[in-house]
């Protein structure tokens, strides 16, 4: 995923100077969204960095795994930075921001309690925007090979000769 970059080429301090933190874990700058520790950054071309940050936050709220870093949610949402998606993303993010404002927040990203955000998502869960984002996450998030080890899943086994000699029956607590 080439536009997700580790910040090795640029100092974290330098990157963070160019952006503002928009909510726990996320920061946006001109033309990019980044992890707030600047461990990763992703350019956006068709949608605004703030819209992408909102999508990433929404993705985590839909499938919240506390042990999975934002980077993996960002990868799952990268496809929405496209000419085809920009109108529906704008509309969807606007609807989330409007719901946040009804609860007294400036926007979805600054709604600080997960329960509040989940309530907003519940109210739009039948919309095509929500269902598209949710449905795509099933493969976009859980089919990332890099995510699998975070669930303990070992992926392909053929090249290692299966599990015949690698613990297919190794539990002893039963």
């Amino acid at each position: 995923m080439e536009t997700i970059t580790s910040s090795k080429g640029i100092s974290r301090r330098e990157l963070l100077k160019r952006c503002m933190v928009v909510g726990a874990g996320l920061a946006v700058g001109t033309g990019f969204v980044a992890g707030s520790t600047a461990a990763w950054a992703m350019e956006t071309k068709h949608i605004s960095p703030k819209q992408m940050a909102t999508l990433i936050r929404m993705a985590r709220d839909v499938y919240p795994h506390n042990h999975i870093p934002d980077e993996f949610y960002a990868r799952a949402m990268k496809g929405y930075d496209s000419d085809d998606s920009k109108a529906s993303v704008a509309e969807g993010v606007m609807s989330l921001d409007k719901l946040a404002q009804e609860k007294g927040y400036a926007d979805y990203l600054s709604a600080s309690w997960e329960d509040d955000r989940v309530e907003m998502l519940k109210s739009i869960e039948d919309s095509s925007f929500f269902q598209t984002v949710r449905g795509n996450l099933i493969t976009g998030l859980y089919n990332q090979k890099e995510v699998w080890p975070l669930f303990g899943y070992e992926g392909e086994s053929y090249s290692k000769g299966g599990y015949m000699n690698r613990g297919y029956n190794d539990i002893n607590w039963v």
């Binding site: 499938y63 919240p64 989940v118 859980y142």
Partner: peptide, 27 residues
């Protein structure tokens, strides 16, 4: 099922903490 199919088939359409609590215990 592997993680990809478990996510798709455990409770199709489900989302939120109840679903991810199950996935978190996949191992």
């Amino acid at each position: 099922l592997g993680v990809p199919f478990m996510a798709a088939f455990l409770d199709p359409g489900a989302w939120g903490r109840s679903f991810t609590a199950a996935m978190d215990m996949y191992e």
